[in-house]
């Protein structure tokens, strides 16, 4: 043994050495391949979805015409009526778009400030004991099925919150289905997301920055708002964008609470239809495959996809652009 180990030149030692390396390399390669396939699966799915959306909506395969080959882009983006299921068909995405954006806007007005405030509270103010109590509760909020939120909007928010205030108090007409109740519950729904992601960003700010700020005579509020929040800016904005993307894509609660009335309106107390609600509506009905209504599904889905993709890319860009380098 010893002599073998000492005699480097006789060749036997390098041989076993190469053997072992080859086996290890093989394992390494196999593991790498498995991981690569897993990564490929999600990429493949995404590409598949994009392919289906584009072929049904834009390009058209074989004899079948794609949606945008029958309906012009100009009509799609300027027409103010969305009536694919009526005899007099109009394909203007605007009512669905405003419905979606109004709900997402209301949700953002509620979810972003509340989420951020709770993130600041959890990260900067809460004692470890309180944090350990509040965090799981927020996570429970994230785990509630969205259909429950929709139901909650319909049977609680509208009759017991909106109507007493806006109908009985201010004399406005609040519909059974309305954008406001949907926006409110979606806003509540995105609070845990904003809070959790923003808190991660806030907590990753080095403790040294806080200490330095305290040493300069800052109050806790100064430290939180003037030092920690700006330092975590990119993470907070990214959490906002992801939450808005989630609100835009939210389906079940919106379908239940906002209704299916594709009217072009900015009145939050009237029923609207979001893009996602339309997709649910058409998918559930007995729409004939290949009909124009069926194809409009893909056009709407593609629009939705482009919006959420843009939000995601934007949030990535914000993260990169404003990422501060700490040594």
């Amino acid at each position: 043994m010893t002599s073998q180990r000492n005699s480097v030149g006789d060749g036997s030692v390098p041989q076993t050495l190469t053997g072992r390396v080859t086996l290890g390399r093989l394992k390494e390669q196999a593991v790498k391949a498995v991981f690569f396939c897993c990564a490929l699966l999600s990429i493949g799915t995404t590409i598949g979805i994009i392919y289906v959306l584009v072929t049904e909506a834009v390009v058209g395969v074989g004899d079948s015409q794609a949606f945008f080959q029958e309906v012009s882009l100009v009509e799609f983006f300027t027409e103010t009526r969305w009536t694919p299921q009526f005899a007099d068909k109009h394909f203007g995405i605007l009512p669905l778009l405003t419905g979606t954006l109004m709900i997402a806007g209301i949700a953002a007005c509620i979810g972003l400030p509340v989420g951020l405030a709770s993130a600041i509270y959890l990260s900067e103010y809460a004692s470890p004991r309180v944090r350990n109590l509040v965090k799981p509760v927020l996570e429970v909020l994230a785990g509630i099925p969205t259909v429950v939120y929709g139901y909650f909007a319909l049977v609680f928010v509208t009759p017991y919150v909106l109507r007493p205030i806006f109908q009985d108090g201010l004399g406005l007409d609040v519909g059974v289905f309305n954008a406001a109740s949907a926006g409110i519950v979606v806003g509540i729904m995105i609070i845990p997301m904003v809070s959790s992601l923003s808190e991660d960003a806030l907590r990753s700010v080095p403790q040294g920055l806080r200490e330095a700020a305290y040493a300069l005579g800052s109050t806790k509020l100064d430290v939180s708002l003037r030092v920690v929040l700006p330092a975590a800016f990119s993470g907070v904005i990214a959490s906002f964008l992801l939450a808005i993307a989630r609100a835009v894509g939210e389906t079940m609660a919106v379908t239940i609470a906002a209704g299916q009335t594709p009217d072009l309106t900015l009145n939050p107390f009237r029923s609207v239809e979001s893009m996602t609600a339309f997709i649910v509506n058409v998918s559930l009905g007995d729409t004939a495959v290949g009909s124009i209504v069926y194809k409009s599904l893909y056009a709407v889905a593609l629009t939705l996809f482009v919006i959420t993709l843009a939000m995601n890319i934007l949030s990535q860009a914000v993260l990169r652009r404003f990422r501060e380098v700490y040594q």
Binding site: L209, A212, L216, G217, V227
Partner: peptide, 29 residues
């Protein structure tokens, strides 16, 4: 803490401009 200032082992500039870093203390005051 304004009367008894402190400098730390690791330099801890805030992710702000040079001006805003120095002006931080007077501003919070």
């Amino acid at each position: 803490r304004k009367r008894v200032g402190m400098v730390f082992q690791k330099s801890t500039p805030f992710p702000k401009s040079i001006f805003d870093n120095v002006a931080y203390g007077p501003r919070v005051a």
